[in-house]
Design a protein around this nucleic acid. Structure first.
Lengths: 217, 217
DNA sequence: ATGCCAATCTTTGTATACAAATAGAGAAAC
DNA sequence: GTTTCTCTATTTGTATACAAAGATTGGCAT
């Protein structure tokens, strides 16, 4: 059996990512420990790990709270993602196998089908968001750069917690899906400049959709 | 007084960065604890933090060793630094104050003076490396992007541990210093494209100096 | 002598106990 | 009523104790 600390780390982590813990909620070691039926030691270890990942903030002698982000954080994150994910595309393109391209195309198709379903469906947006994450993760994996993957991973969970996908307009969603298709086409053509440019545009478009334009600070 | 865990974290950290701990050396919690006159608990916390930072590797039930890197790691790191640090330049240029420009110019001058001193001096290279780090850190700080700084920081300590600066030829060193000057000039001119391009070239040149050219894998 | 297995010894993982620090409630002063 | 101060109650930080998992050494068989 895996270590308790790892298990509880994953539990708290997914709880935060699913938004089950309200923003800036205090995470008291003892409380978590008794509610999970374990001692404080592994809870403490889990919280420190989450802090290193940026999902919780800990102040000395004051304990941990689930982290909070503002518009400025989001702007920084999308800026960096636009750079790093486009670089991932650049690295992935010359390495892409036919099977990998097909995998990406299938996700595109699935997302397009999901987008055509009933707009009022509550599960539609989370499902799209999940597929979207798979699409991006796949390209990062294809880039074959461990560290690039790690860097992007630390950036990605903030938008997840904030559930930024909820603000997507139908137009923006359609554009996003066209971007995905275009990225795959560019990769299929072996054109890494094209692919990385579309990816950069894709992430920057998402930034503007979520943050609105203009605000400098 | 600061927390013991933080103190010991910093102690182990600087020990690793200074190369005082040999590569892949085991870090036994109990041993460290008694040698520092404390209990295992804060040592353990420090080691986990270092693991999150990538400076040590921990395997379940097997403990921690100081991390090890190979040529492939270095290649990834310099690739990413070339992108991220040039982005830092781009952000920093329109924000740069006269005082900050002057600060950077002073570092350039100090490094040039150091470079002119006796080649055989043992302390010359470490001193140059230290100034070099200050130069780069200053620009990152000027970029005013917390996260960008954090990302670069996790990349930077690997070359430090490996003491890559030791392989610099006199030619490479001279070029490196000219790059620094040119970066500052570009920033002074308010030309962020120029500045970021030189920075990118600067880091890529360092990569080739350290790794040699050609090897793809 | 060499390879393999078992017992032991070391080291990590978790629980508990205690000390130190902070937050919060309540009382006193204004 | 409001502010501030003190005392108490919570909560974190560290130490220690114990259990479980690995590493190691010695003996046994071949």
């Amino acid at each position: 059996m895996a270590k308790i600390a790892t298990t509880v780390y994953e539990q708290i982590r997914t709880a935060i990512l699913n938004g089950e813990l309200s923003n800036s909620e205090r995470l008291v070691e003892e409380d978590l420990a008794v509610s999970l039926g374990i001692s404080r030691t592994p809870v403490r270890e889990a919280l420190r790990r989450l802090a290193a990942e940026g999902l919780v903030d800990v102040s000395p002698n004051r304990g941990a709270r689930v982290a909070e982000w503002d518009v400025h954080d989001l702007r920084e994150i999308f800026d960096l993602r636009s750079i790093l994910e486009s670089h991932a595309c650049e690295l992935a393109t010359p390495r892409a196998s036919a099977a990998e391209i097909e995998f990406l195309e299938n996700i595109c198709t699935e997302m397009e089908e999901l987008a055509r379903t009933d707009l009022s469906s509550e599960t539609r947006l989370p499902a799209l968001a999940a597929k979207n994450r798979i699409f991006h993760s796949k390209i990062i994996e294809m880039s074959n750069s461990t560290r690039l993957g790690l860097l992007i991973e630390t950036l990605i969970h903030v938008p997840i917690v904030m559930q930024t996908y909820k603000v997507y307009s139908p137009d923006a969603l359609a554009r996003s899906l066209r971007h995905h298709r275009e990225i795959v086409n560019a990769m299929k053509a072996g054109d890494e400049v094209w692919a990385s440019s579309v990816m950069r545009a894709h992430v920057l478009a998402a930034r503007e959709e979520i943050l609105g334009q203009g605000q400098t600070e």
